[in-house]
Design a protein around this nucleic acid. Structure first.
Lengths: 121, 121
DNA sequence: ATGGGAATGAAAATCATTTTCATTTGTGCT
DNA sequence: AGCACAAATGAAAATGATTTTCATTCCCAT
């Protein structure tokens, strides 16, 4: 298994903590960094595994990565401008737990995301 | 511009109102319907334009379509055997609505999925 | 029948992402 | 230093969904 290349994380930070793999790659190229696209993808995967970055999807399906806070949270994403708000999911945690128990599931995790149009769009 | 092929919509309904373009295509093939993948994509696009169906994204980025306003359900998926249980998400609906309103979002939808290990695994 | 626009679908093009695999780099050991 | 072995790297090929192209077929009003 591979470890994350630190330059990838630092580029993601510089990009405003919000970019696709391809964008990070192009950004590094433009700045004269020598790196392969493969390594960018691998590093991002590893950062996601380590829960250092979050992965979302653009409307066109391209994956976008961004630094995430430490607390477990969910997202409210605008379909128009892509603006994202981190929100609390207390209700979800409970719901997931109850549903899982009800069906005899163990080691449960969950995903939940809300999307719509923000006030500006 | 092209119009939606009615058989595509009817297949989407039959699929539980929740399927990807590829799945709809395979389903129609399996049932002996003669249709091209291109037409499936075009029909879905047109249905989305007409707001008859909604488009979401799977975790892997594949687009999934579902009938608008359809009472939708969520999934409890086993990480071990892939077994899936359909569950109610009343708590989620409420949570999504409240959170969206709180941040001034309109036309909101959401995705939520629980995963873990089922009793057999 | 016939002319034209819409619908169709096979095949090629696109694009993000993953896989393969040979090469390079790093690290610990003697 | 020299050696061995694991991890990291990246170019190129493979994959898979989606879109585009384009020639053909269908349908409908004249």
């Amino acid at each position: 298994m591979s470890r994350s290349n630190p330059r990838v994380l630092s580029t993601l930070e510089r990009a405003g903590g919000f970019a696709s793999a391809q964008e990070i790659y192009r950004l590094m190229q433009r700045e004269g960094e020598s790196i392969g696209l493969t390594t960018v993808y691998r590093s991002l995967q590893s950062l996601v595994n380590d829960k250092i970055v979050d992965v979302l999807r653009r409307d066109d399906g391209e994956a976008i990565y961004r630094l995430c806070g430490d607390a477990h949270h969910h997202h409210l994403v605008c379909k128009g401008c892509g603006d994202t708000v981190e929100i609390e999911g207390g209700a979800i945690e409970k719901w997931a737990k109850v549903m899982a128990e009800e069906h005899g599931f163990r080691e449960v995790g969950h995903t939940a995301e809300i999307f719509g149009l923000c006030s500006k769009c």
